[in-house]
């Protein structure tokens, strides 16, 4: 139930956003975040709950940096 899906804002009208999820176009409430068209966002239950930092998205190097020096 806590699933949240990443998408891209393609239109904004006040706090109503239109979000593109890989071709699926859905309306989402944007009142919980500061967004602009083109932003990557995380949508949960019809609401954008967070914006995503595209620079860090799927950056394996970042992940490895975070666990640098740990061994088992």
């Amino acid at each position: 139930m806590c699933v949240a899906i990443p998408g891209t804002v393609i239109k904004l009208d006040g706090t109503k956003a239109t979000v593109d999820f890989a071709g699926n176009i859905v309306n989402a409430e944007a009142g919980l975040v500061n967004v602009k068209v083109g932003d990557k966002v995380l949508v949960h239950a019809g609401c954008i709950i967070q914006t995503m930092d595209e620079k860090l998205a799927n950056e394996m190097e970042e992940l490895f940096n975070e666990i640098e020096g740990l061994t088992i």
């Binding site: 975070e66 666990i67 740990l70």
Partner: peptide
Amino acid sequence: AQLLMTIYALVSMKGKTGMKNLYKDV
């Protein structure tokens, strides 16, 4: 991959205090 690295980190940190964030884009 994120989950495997998370588990790896937690095994390594057993018995210690610490927080790591492997979901920084969000």
